[in-house]
Design a protein around this nucleic acid. Structure first.
Lengths: 217, 217
DNA sequence: TACTTTTAGTGTGTATACAAAATACATGAA
DNA sequence: TTCATGTATTTTGTATACACACTAAAAGTA
């Protein structure tokens, strides 16, 4: 019920922003390619006003680049961009981990542990897609447990920008076991409320992400 | 010359966004107050389309909140908001400091030292406003020296959100000497390329900011 | 009096029309 | 052929008009 209210409550430009965001993440709108306003508004069945407002939002989020009088393009991430994002993300998640160890309740940690166990189940059965989704949720939830709204927001923003890259990097199966080992370490640290160790696990986790991803940018 | 090109190159909604941003920072548009579209577009001499696009940008930046069908309001920061921003900012600037120590050239550090000396001159002559501006620049420049674009962007975003609060906190003269001492320590650490010490100085600097500011939110 | 319900009025959301800029193309000169 | 210049077409930027949703005040009912 609440969700139907939320949907009708959302203005058209918000809905358009979400849909275009998805098109970018799924790679249907390719990085570096021009965003054809006329074509897309027809596709989406909206007029230019809400579409352009959505574009401004996406530009502020760093997903598209608006070049005045020259149209908008899907932001193409350079290896440097991705490296800098992962560097910041690692540092933010380190902080998130430390704060979560201080501030999260036992129930909240339990819940996260259960989420982790569901991930492990997916790993055992090699269900890549559900694992991928649970993983995203794990990191978001951990950021929530930091009880720091700004941290959550910044983390979500970087995650959104990286989503497409992660999606591609995920095709490579090699280091899945390594990622799982990192997560095991995280959960152990979380149970012990050892912020230091949790932070280190998260940072090392993102270093591996870089190794996995860097050649496919 | 370059700047005049930049100005003409900027689309109207960008200009509007800048102007409204200034109105918010200067407190002419008060936090929590409704943004009267009709009134402001007349004031600024633009039509609703670019104005609303600007509003979407500012919303994505976290300066205004758009409530569907209910108009936009200037975001009102709670003490929790400000604390969470400073907590993240401290952590980001710590990283910036560490990276700057690794990656900045001697010339770049020299330049920053000179900027610092100009600040000290303003402190001696008690020129609060120029000091304030140089201080902003000091922190931005330091973020640049991290050679991490994402870090710069995130730092700039938080700085923008806090600008108004900082502006108010700046009225209180008491802890100016303390801030200056922090900056002395930063510059020393930077000269020695001691990332650890620089990071700690920046973090402690922001803790003091919180102490100064927390009662005036 | 208190509580709905109605109804004007204001302000927001979206569509469209027009203006301005940029791109693509064709024509002609070197 | 190549380059320049002018024109046509496309695309973007801005203004405005209309429709709809919310707000609040007035009228009606218990």
């Amino acid at each position: 019920m609440a969700s139907s209210i939320a949907i009708t409550n959302r203005s058209l430009h918000d809905q358009v922003a979400s849909r275009v965001r998805d098109l970018i993440i799924e790679g249907i709108l390719e990085p570096g390619s021009r965003i054809d306003e006329g074509h897309l508004i027809e596709e989406l069945g909206v007029s230019r006003t809400p579409f352009r407002e959505a574009l401004r939002t996406l530009a502020a989020e760093g997903l598209v680049i608006v070049r005045p009088s020259k149209g908008s393009i899907v932001r193409q991430l350079t290896p440097d961009d991705v490296f800098s994002m992962l560097e910041v993300l690692a540092h933010l998640e380190r902080l998130a981990g430390e704060l979560a160890c201080e501030r999260a309740s036992d129930e909240e940690i339990d819940e996260l542990v259960r989420l982790h166990e569901r991930m492990m189940e997916c790993y055992r059965t090699r269900d890549r897609m559900p694992y991928y989704k649970l993983n995203q949720e794990f990191h978001s939830r951990l950021a929530e447990l930091s009880k720091n709204g700004t941290l959550q927001e910044m983390q979500a923003n970087i995650q959104a920008r990286l989503k497409r890259i992660r999606y591609i990097g995920n095709q490579k199966p090699d280091s899945w076991a390594g990622a799982v080992a990192d997560h095991e370490q995280m959960v152990r640290a979380l149970k012990d409320r050892d912020g230091q160790q949790l932070g280190e696990a998260m940072a090392s986790h993102l270093k591996k992400t870089w190794e996995r991803v860097k050649d496919s940018i």
